[in-house]
């Protein structure tokens, strides 16, 4: 029987699954308030902590750049990792799983749709916080910094796919698990302070999350005087390795998830 090729279905699925996110963000603008104000408030609170401590200006920059990447971590956790869990609750997962498409394409589509919101959120944090507190950045290495940002986001989304398979094995506790992946990860990834301050062991552990090395590398490039955690080149190599490793792991885990879920009825059992 003739049917569309797997690659065609893959790309069509990405576009189609991104569509509701994209359209939804235009039709329901309430997200603008929460998605921009909430991270902005968190960033500003941390800036005031440094202000109270009379910290050098670059430390305010550390916080702002942390706030920028935090938006993507939130997108990965709430709009990607937990998404199959929400979709199962709403009954969509059955329809996704029953279609001749891949779950990876569904997840990538969701992430793509969410990037728009994350970019808006990041831009708001970067522009508003930098302007309010007069934070300057070195633009000499802006392009490499952007390149590392893109690589970091790619690695992050590959990790998000791995987490998505994990989350499907949870019932009500999925929400709490996602919640628990916030402050502990902000700590381990050095969102608000130089990664080097974590020391080799904790920093090394935190580096399993692509954000840690990506954030440190970007800070090194745009905020001169950033205490170096590891040399920039190593960080870039490590992020590329993470893209490959998490990419492969995500495929393996998604296949395992699908098989195991068919066995355990996890694709059809709804939970709230």
């Amino acid at each position: 029987m003739n049917h569309p090729s797997a690659i065609r279905i893959f790309f069509k699925t990405i576009v189609a699954r991104a569509y509701p996110r994209f359209v939804g963000s235009h039709r329901n603008l309430t997200w603008l308030v929460t998605e921009t104000l909430l991270p902005l408030i968190g960033t500003i609170a941390m800036i005031y902590v440094y202000r109270a401590l009379h910290a050098p200006a670059r430390y305010l920059g550390f916080v702002v750049l942390g706030g920028v990447l935090l938006a993507f971590w939130q997108n990965v956790i709430w709009s990607m990792a937990t998404q199959f869990f929400w979709d199962r609750g709403g009954g969509n997962l059955e329809l996704f799983a029953m279609a001749p498409t891949s779950l990876a394409a569904i997840l990538l589509g969701m992430a793509l749709g969410g990037v728009y919101m994350s970019l808006t959120r990041s831009a708001a944090v970067l522009l508003v916080a930098s302007t309010l507190f007069g934070i300057g950045y070195s633009t000499a290495s802006l392009l490499p910094a952007l390149g590392i940002f893109v690589l970091t986001v790619c690695a992050l989304y590959c990790l998000g796919m791995v987490l998505a398979s994990l989350f499907l094995f949870y019932q009500r506790e999925a929400w709490q698990l996602a919640d628990a992946l916030q402050e502990p990860i902000y700590f381990l990834s050095g969102f608000y302070f130089p990664v080097r301050s974590l020391g080799a062991v904790v920093g090394g552990l935190g580096s399993l999350i692509p954000l840690t090395l990506g954030l440190d590398a970007i800070r090194q490039l745009v905020l001169p005087g950033t205490p170096q955690f590891v040399p920039l080149a190593w960080e870039v190599v490590a992020i590329v390795v993470q893209i490959v490793a998490y990419g492969v792991l995500s495929q393996v885990s998604l296949r395992y998830l699908e098989l195991q879920s068919r066995q355990d009825a996890r694709l059809i059992l709804r939970s709230t």
Binding site: P4, S5, I9, A16, T101
Partner: peptide, 13 residues
């Protein structure tokens, strides 16, 4: 019609 289109894309239509 958007919803119907979206589901059809998961089949590569």
């Amino acid at each position: 019609r958007e919803q119907l289109w979206m589901f059809s894309q998961f089949y590569g239509m």
